[in-house]
């Protein structure tokens, strides 16, 4: 018989090679984290010029497009003299680049200038609105992730099942409606018509937390609902692909329970795309929050920005844009860190 050989003692031959090179633990940690640190440094380095670019664009657009802010502030009946005087006070008689440079150096010294109305520092204005917006958007983010991701993972792993079928139809309906419209309808229906939850009105976060929470429920749901649908879809699609992979079968062959499989293997493999989406959704949610705050009478940076844009209050608009852009960039960085953790294969590129 051709090619028949005995069984070789392969195990015995190769079994002994267990001695490893023991590197110092601290060194090894730095070594392992190096690509991550490099990435973070790169992103932070890019963030500064990016923010300058964003602010410059906003500055340029508002300088071109808005009517004379001095006239807008003083009203139609103002005399040309008083308008000219205000223009001088606000520095509007300076050249565009000169003004932008002044603003930028102010930012470099930690200030965002004063509002053109009432001379309140922009930072003060923003910090008044920030708690409300942060609560709104953070709560909406958490709600979106907590509902969208587990539901998507489960439905994706059991395609064609009951959960999948029902959730798919709901998500299709949810996605067919414009985001702003959903927010408005929810507010009108739940608080104005049915009076299930408190209607519009000023929200004081410092007061009774339960009252504050009750005030937040509708706007949070209004912001989150369309995003939940989108995130569910994305997660389900990714999980469905992962569920078909050979390595999932390998895990099953090892005796893993379906629940552990979902929680560990499928989750980690399927979450790259949903996490990226969630990062993008933060920006969208801040945008919708502006509408919801205005409609619902909440004093957040969104409504401050809308107000400022309507009254040509450029320093406030710029301040809000800058803060928002910084937040969105921070979210992107977090997304990248998450991806780094979730997808080891992509690390070295």
């Amino acid at each position: 018989m051709s090619g028949i050989s005995g069984r070789g003692p392969v195990v015995a031959l190769v079994g002994g090679a267990t001695a490893g090179r023991g590197a110092k633990p601290a060194n090894r940690f730095v070594q392992k984290a190096a690509p991550l640190l490099r990435m973070v440094a790169r992103r932070v380095g890019i963030a500064v010029p990016l923010l300058v670019l964003v602010s410059f664009s906003v500055f340029a657009i508002s300088s071109i497009s808005t009517a004379d802010p001095a006239r807008a502030i003083l009203g139609e009946g103002a005399t040309p003299q008083s308008v000219a005087q205000l223009r001088h006070q606000l520095g509007l008689d300076q050249s565009f680049l000169h003004r932008y440079w002044d603003w930028l150096s102010g930012v470099a010294h930690g200030g965002l200038g004063n509002s053109w109305y009432g001379n309140i520092p922009v930072l003060t204005k923003i910090s008044q609105g920030l708690p409300t917006t942060i609560s709104l958007v953070l709560a909406a983010m958490i709600l979106t992730a907590v509902v969208g991701i587990p539901l998507g993972l489960y439905a994706g792993m059991r395609r064609g099942g009951k959960v999948d079928t029902i959730a798919n139809s709901l998500a299709a309906i949810g996605l067919a409606m414009p985001e702003f419209w959903v927010a408005l309808v929810l507010i009108l229906l739940l608080s104005v018509k049915l009076r299930v939850l408190p209607g519009t009105g000023a929200l004081t976060l410092s007061g009774d937390p339960w009252q504050a929470a009750r005030h937040l429920i509708i706007p949070v749901v209004a912001i989150a609902l369309p995003q939940i649908c989108a995130l569910y879809r994305q997660t389900r699609a990714s999980a469905a692909i992962v569920a078909q992979q050979d390595y999932v079968r390998t895990a099953r062959a090892g005796g893993i329970s379906e629940w552990s499989l979902l929680r560990t293997r499928v989750a980690k493999n399927a979450l790259v795309a949903p996490v990226t989406l969630l990062g993008l959704q933060l920006g969208r949610m801040i945008g919708i929050a502006a509408v919801v705050e205005s409609v619902y009478g909440l004093h957040g940076i969104g409504s401050i920005a809308v107000q400022a844009a309507l009254t040509s209050d450029l320093p406030v608009v710029l301040g809000v844009v800058l803060v928002t852009a910084a937040v969105v960039m921070a979210a992107n960085l977090l997304t990248d860190i998450a991806t780094y953790y979730l997808a080891p294969k992509a690390r070295n590129s």
């Binding site: 992979q245 050979d246 390595y247 079968r249 390998t250 895990a251 099953r252 062959a253 090892g254 005796g255 893993i256 329970s257 293997r265 980690k268 493999n269 979730l342 997808a343 080891p344 294969k345």
Partner: peptide
């Protein structure tokens, strides 16, 4: 059956390229 898989019966699959989970050590 889950206690049989991996414990009483071990399986080696056809394609080692796709049968190991890329996201875990």
């Amino acid at each position: 059956m889950r206690r049989v898989r991996g414990k009483e019966i071990g399986i080696i699959f056809q394609d080692p390229m796709t049968s190991l989970d890329p996201a875990f050590t």
